[in-house]
Amino acid sequence: MHSIPGRRLIMALFLIFLLLPIYWLVNMSFKTNAEIVSSMTLWPHTPTLQHYKRIFTDESWYSGYINSLEYVVLNTIISISVALPAAYAFSRYRFLGDKHLFFWLLSNRMAPAAVYALPFFNLYSAIGLFDTPWAVALAHCIFNVPLAVWILEGFVSGVPREIDETAFLDGYSFPRFFIKILVPLIASGIGVAAFFCFMFSWVELLLARTLTSVSAKPIAAIMTRTVSAAGMDWGLLAAAGVLTIIPGALVIWFVRNYIASGFALGRV
């Protein structure tokens, strides 16, 4: 691939720009609050683990991580399992209203969460799911299901039709063909779609916060508690922030080879 002059410098500068704010957060999470407020230090002079210790020993803190992971995983499973057959249908068949349906799905991916916050609150309260991981998992389907359909459709289209036809000639029933042949063929696509569902559910806060109050509160909402009468607990806030970055970083590492094509939604 052809690149431009000075590319190493540009890349290095941009990566520093990306990493510097994150470094500052990590840096602060290892400082005592006294050091944060009183002096400007580029690295912790009296490193401490007190903030992390507090998060891992206080249930009201670490339960937030469990709650978040719970609805993220639920949402990913729901999204992928309903999106798979639909992606196949969109990729292989034409049917009444298919284009309109696809556009309608796409438009839901773009719908502002703020619009849905209040109606979701009413809806999930009415059916008794309020403050459970299910409410958030279902609410996040509004943008993750269309996205999963979109990504998977691209990957299914990459599988030659002849494979379907041969399988059916060999006497495979549709469900068996789907599970035994199609799913293994687009396994990487499913991984990419799962990654994106995970990502968008993990980073979303407005709906997650609106639909939970006590028992299913996500970690990102718990973080707002660090404001107390004694002022901001900056160190604790920074430590909690660092811990929310780690799951994302881990997941990226696993899909690093597919990130680029995945972001193109399987359409390059």
Binding site: M199, V203, L205, A220, I245, P247, G248, I252
Partner: peptide, 11 residues
């Protein structure tokens, strides 16, 4: 590059 995309928005 992908790291900022995976950070929760309020973080």
């Amino acid at each position: 590059l992908a790291l900022p995309l995976l950070i929760p928005w309020n973080v």
